[in-house]
Design a protein around this nucleic acid. Structure first.
Lengths: 140, 140
DNA sequence: TTTATTTCTAACAATGGTTGCAGATTGGGT
DNA sequence: ACCCAATCTGCAACCATTGTTAGAAATAAA
């Protein structure tokens, strides 16, 4: 994801308006490595601007995802996770117990070639490694 | 997943009852490569036994998943998909346009080692390859 | 700066997938 | 055949997310 300042410029250049709600979402995502849910982005935003609705947060997250500035992950933790790191290709580590998601910088390089059916247009591949994080494992 | 007959035996040996509803679900899943949703399992079951409720199908799918006889996938198509193939490790190919899910027999072999944090207990890894299947690509 | 235009936001309702619950039903051991 | 625990159905509730709409607010135009 670009910096909030760069996003502001980009939105403006596309005829989109710069609202304090949008800027608050940009800020909440910037350099955020936690792969937040819409709900947690909303919490962060509300801490500064108590009137922002969850609907607006969803809207902005969808807009950013559509522009390719963030990516939306479905990792089976119930709600979608949003990842501002679209610059560096990477995968994810998920704790099935607490829902923590962490970047995983691992080369997958699957030799897809032979088992992809003819005519299938591959758009991308995501690896999700599941397990239990240390603090959850320590709990019992 | 074991055969319906073997599952029947297994259920019985665990003190669980063999109901026609459960058998219908076993049959609907047996050798089913489509990664059905709960809804489509229900449709198949209802074709033979019109009174079976969706709730019971969910219940049985959850039971089977808990026993490790099937696995539940979240691939971002809106609803969970159930996969009776737990014998052979494999990954998945997903058409983002029609929701088709297909097995992908590809070796991923990620050298996880260095980027997994200390103390994280890895339970498994799933690769999802996304794109457009031929028939969807042909459509426009 | 004021106005006009057009987008955005908030609130609320609605949706879709899934689960919780309660009472009626039924499998299977006796 | 009887009994009891397990199961089933039907329905309500739940959660994450999206649709809708009227009012508010940002930018462009005057």
């Amino acid at each position: 994801m670009k910096t909030p300042a760069a996003l502001t410029e980009q939105f403006r250049s596309q005829g989109l308006k710069i609202t304090p709600q949008r800027v608050a979402v940009f800020d909440a995502l910037h350099d955020n490595p936690t792969h937040p849910t819409a709900e947690s982005v909303h919490s962060a935003v509300v801490a500064r601007m108590p009137t922002v609705s969850l609907r607006t947060v969803y809207q902005t997250l969808n807009d950013l995802a559509e522009m390719g500035e963030i990516s939306r992950l479905e990792v089976g933790t119930g709600s979608a996770r949003f990842d501002p790191n679209v610059e560096e290709p990477h995968h994810h580590l998920v704790c099935e117990s607490c829902g923590m998601v962490r970047d995983l910088h691992v080369e997958v390089a699957p030799d897809l070639g032979d088992d992809v059916p003819d005519g299938f247009e591959v758009a991308g591949a995501e690896l999700v490694v599941r397990g239990r994080c240390r603090s959850c494992a320590d709990k019992d």
